[in-house]
């Protein structure tokens, strides 16, 4: 068996060598490449998740500069999916990144069925519900993250849990409408999502074990919600 590339050496101890090799064979999809998704693809690539699909139809605008890791002055107007591809090429060309500069609704269910985990990094509630439904049809677990101001939530929804449907019901949006999205909250939520995604990929969160955490960075309050 070939030695693991040096780039993964400092992952070991956190992951076993077998776990690292397993991640290199995994396929993940990140839906939304903004505040959450930018941090997400960066960390997944550094973790060595072997195939990463990134999906976002949007281009960068100046109001993304406060928090979106992949957004720079130089790439304003550029496709977020293309920016993610370029960034991942710079930090880990050994992982395969496939850019989808499109809405996730246009990706077929059969494509979803080939994945081992999907990350919900969207910024609209109706889109999140639709993504959960699509993951359920495809039988793939969804790692959810959402933020607003100092607050955020991160969860794992296995097919059948209908976690997002239960949280949001028919609500069109959340408190982010009033509170905005600062630089640090998406980074916290995205890191928690990556950790949960890795746990799913390594089989350390059992199928069916859905969960949700709520965090409040203003009052340093972290809650596990038994949903």
């Amino acid at each position: 068996m070939d030695a693991l590339p040096d780039r993964y050496r400092r992952n070991l101890g956190t992951f076993t060598e077998a776990g690292q090799r397993q991640l290199l064979t995994c396929r993940a999809l990140v839906v939304g490449l903004g505040g959450l998704g930018g941090h997400m693809v960066e960390q997944l690539a550094r973790a060595g998740v072997g195939t990463i699909h990134g999906c976002d139809p949007d281009v960068f605008t100046a109001d993304n500069l406060n928090r979106q890791l992949l957004c720079t002055v130089a790439n304003l107007g550029q496709s977020k999916a293309e920016a993610a591809r370029q960034r991942l090429q710079q930090i880990n060309p050994e992982v395969k990144f496939i850019a989808h500069a499109t809405r996730f609704q246009e990706l077929p269910v059969e494509f979803f069925s080939e994945l081992q985990v999907v990350f919900d990094c969207l910024d609209t509630v109706p889109g999140r519900i639709e993504l959960e439904q699509k993951c359920e049809r495809a039988g793939v677990p969804l790692v959810h993250g959402a933020i607003g101001g100092w607050y955020g939530q991160v969860g794992v929804a296995w097919p059948g849990a209908r976690l997002l449907e239960r949280i949001y019901r028919s609500r069109p949006a959340g408190i982010e409408q009033q509170l905005g999205n600062p630089p640090f909250t998406p980074a916290v939520a995205a890191s928690m999502m990556v950790a949960k995604g890795v746990l799913v990929l390594l089989g350390k969160i059992a199928p069916g074990e859905s969960r949700l955490q709520f965090f409040d960075l203003l009052h340093d309050d972290w809650q596990n919600l038994p949903l």
């Binding site: 505040g35 969207l122 959340g174 408190i175 982010e176 999205n181």
Partner: peptide
């Protein structure tokens, strides 16, 4: 009681 959080 928790509010809805939906941003990304």
């Amino acid at each position: 009681l928790f509010p809805a959080v939906g941003g990304g």
